[in-house]
Amino acid sequence: MENVFAAPKSHNTFAWENLGNIKEGRGDLGEEMPVLVYRLMQFTMLDILTESYGSEKANDLFRDAGFLAGTEFAKNTLDLNVDLNAFVANLQKALEDLKIGILRMEAFDAETGNLMLTVGQDLDCSGLPLTNETVCNYDEGFIAGILEAYTGKHYEVREVDCWANGDRTCRFRGTVLQD
């Protein structure tokens, strides 16, 4: 039977509005959930992707997903028409409010647009067992997506220090890519 009322779009294609009305949908349980659940989903997905495509490709896919999330997050929740300091302040607050992490800017080169920032108590990796690798590929994409949405420039963001390699703060370097 065909349901002519169903939304024409598939959930396999991301759209911000398809995140749904969480408040209404979870009237009793509320809008929040433990980080454990987030990580359970993320790391099982990484596991399956790695099994299917190898770790490098799996990391790339995670990064791409993070980029899409960062772009949509910036477009839908942040004011993109304010100056850099106000934007960073708003972003810090948004990341804190949503308990994603504590963002701190360490350096910004106004000429090149390159920057260095840290995320403390990061949602993805804080408290992970030590593996001597950087694991915040999703964060790399997420930050790149936000920066691109704000500046209109293509950013490559790489994690240079990660909780999973012994640092309590994840540090990211953002470099503007020349088109």
Binding site: R104, M116, G166, D167, R171
Partner: peptide, 20 residues
């Protein structure tokens, strides 16, 4: 992977952020 240094590295990160 120098986990012994993690607290000091957090301090360095905080000071860099404060500098900015």
């Amino acid at each position: 992977g120098n986990e012994v240094a993690s607290g000091m590295k957090s301090l360095q990160a905080s000071l860099r952020h404060l500098t900015w």
